[in-house]
Design a protein around this nucleic acid. Sequence first.
DNA 1: GCCTCAATTGCAAACGTTTGCGTAAAATAT
DNA 2: ATATTTTACGCAAACGTTTGCAATTGAGGC
Lengths: 339, 339
Amino acid sequence: MNNSVSIKDIAKKFKCAPSTISRALNDHPAINIETRKTIQEYALKVGYQKNTLSLSLLNNCSMTLGLILPSITHYHESSILEGMEEILLKSGYLLNICVSNESHTIEKEYIDRLLANRVDGLFISMAQESYDQQLGEHIDLVIQRSLPVIFIDRPNHGVASDRVVTDDYQGAFMATQHLIDMGCQRIAHLHGPSGISVSQQRFLGFQDCLLANGRQVEGDLIQYVHFSAESAIQATRNLMQSAHKPDAIFGVNDEVCIAAMFVLREMGVSVPHDVAIVGFDDIPLASFVHPPLSSVSRQSRRIGEEAAKLFLSKKDQKLDPMTISLDPKLIIRESSLRT
Amino acid sequence: MNNSVSIKDIAKKFKCAPSTISRALNDHPAINIETRKTIQEYALKVGYQKNTLSLSLLNNCSMTLGLILPSITHYHESSILEGMEEILLKSGYLLNICVSNESHTIEKEYIDRLLANRVDGLFISMAQESYDQQLGEHIDLVIQRSLPVIFIDRPNHGVASDRVVTDDYQGAFMATQHLIDMGCQRIAHLHGPSGISVSQQRFLGFQDCLLANGRQVEGDLIQYVHFSAESAIQATRNLMQSAHKPDAIFGVNDEVCIAAMFVLREMGVSVPHDVAIVGFDDIPLASFVHPPLSSVSRQSRRIGEEAAKLFLSKKDQKLDPMTISLDPKLIIRESSLRT
DNA sequence: GCCTCAATTGCAAACGTTTGCGTAAAATAT
DNA sequence: ATATTTTACGCAAACGTTTGCAATTGAGGC
């Protein structure tokens, strides 16, 4: 069944000790240069491949990391993964990917498996269930074992921890201010799932910007959605059917905004003339929908890169918990441009 | 640095042999029921976590699989991953994710690492570089070690192997036939990167459908693009600036079609009236662009599920190489509906 | 011929866990 | 009281690799 050849096998062929083979393959100078070459050539020929598992066991270091995400199908999440991969590739690590599907149970299960496999570190964006119910003990346990844990996007409650995030608050503030600058009077918000940090921060930035401009958040201009386009359909209809129609919408992400634009078009409402729109994430298609969607870019790929770099530096030296907050950029396109 | 407690540590506390602890934790009946409980409670208290690495070494089975993809940011790829995860979660496996970025060098490097970590199986969608240059030896080597390898989307050249794919040919045929049925006379194709199976199959389906309807592929109606929206901008302009303008476009994926619609709108060309459009993949946003995009759905998530299931069944019993081909579904929306 | 030194290679332990087999003690049967 | 079974646990090997230390060999100096 398994054809893999071990150092012991090679040792038998050469009638010598495994230690000699090991040294020869690692080019140890104590081994005769010709012996080395012969052994190396033979190893190549028979396709010897080092078994890292034994080393992991010996050195207590598996060169493997874990990444737990609530989902992976959104551009933001998969970009994080790609950024992370790019850095880790150079450093010799492998990445275990785990999709929690926002479930606390699954998240716990994955953490168990990752710990059992002795990953050297853990990147995690907490499941909504864990976050809502403040179920962080399973993660605290990990941290207590002095295993590096780096939070992505969604922080752990209370506990000081390493984090890489975009400043969602600032991004939302910028987006809202832009809509105000465009002369919008009644700015609605498609609010993400409650309990999730990202939703909360974006709402807060939205709210504080209104207050800073001497306005109030009006309850009937807030509609809750999930992160999917579908969920924004009814929400947008609700907004437009109320007595107090909005003349702008700030959405929790681009998908819900594109869905909103779809509904507005159906209703004969013009974007940006009647309703201006700004989204969040700046997905690649944002430039190509009609009208092109203004959006807050959160440098998704860089989040992954920075998280990976943070792990690498924490591995080398003991550092206090830190938060890396990336600046969002407002990309203005037609959907919010009023002349 | 490492706080993890081992069976040996527990054995010392209880002044007994490690084997006793092992058996107690595994609820072996040979161990006194009360001893068992005491040990189990203690293990729980000190947070004992089984070290799977030692077992992997012992049993030659790591309960870890590898997934190598050219990229992960497209909906199709991340959906495959999610489908795979769902099945593997139940079976106790972990998944190592590797993004080759279409590079042969990186792909080889990742395969090396995965082999060194003794993954129990490998899912791979070959990098374009490997595919173009017929560089498959690194993968053949893996198969020779009787390590299960399952190809996703892009098959290995020649060699009989396990595959899970969508029938791209059939999907393209259906899409083209639909455009013909809608009365389109000059159907253009935004052709994906050459050398990639997916591009080739879709072109072949397109071509054969034209032939089956007594038509020919016309060279100036074929434009090459990458899988990104950006790459379709110029390609679409080229199509529309030629003397022989198309009245329909079949695109290699939805992104290029949405970009094409963007260009057509700029040029004042009406979709579907002047140009009908059908894409491929049926990404979630396809329903929400204007006009809603007709597209061939390829059940991305199911590809991942079937691949995972195929691995599980191959693990249990020796099976001949097989190809699982999933039927594509044509989803007709406004972008191709001519009345 | 003896001592020293360098050049090579081997030995054994270690990482954490499981498991077949052996063994001691206790319980039961005769 | 002896023989037999049952109960409960320990021993040691195994997985593959590295590494400090010991050991062997040969050459060279005297």
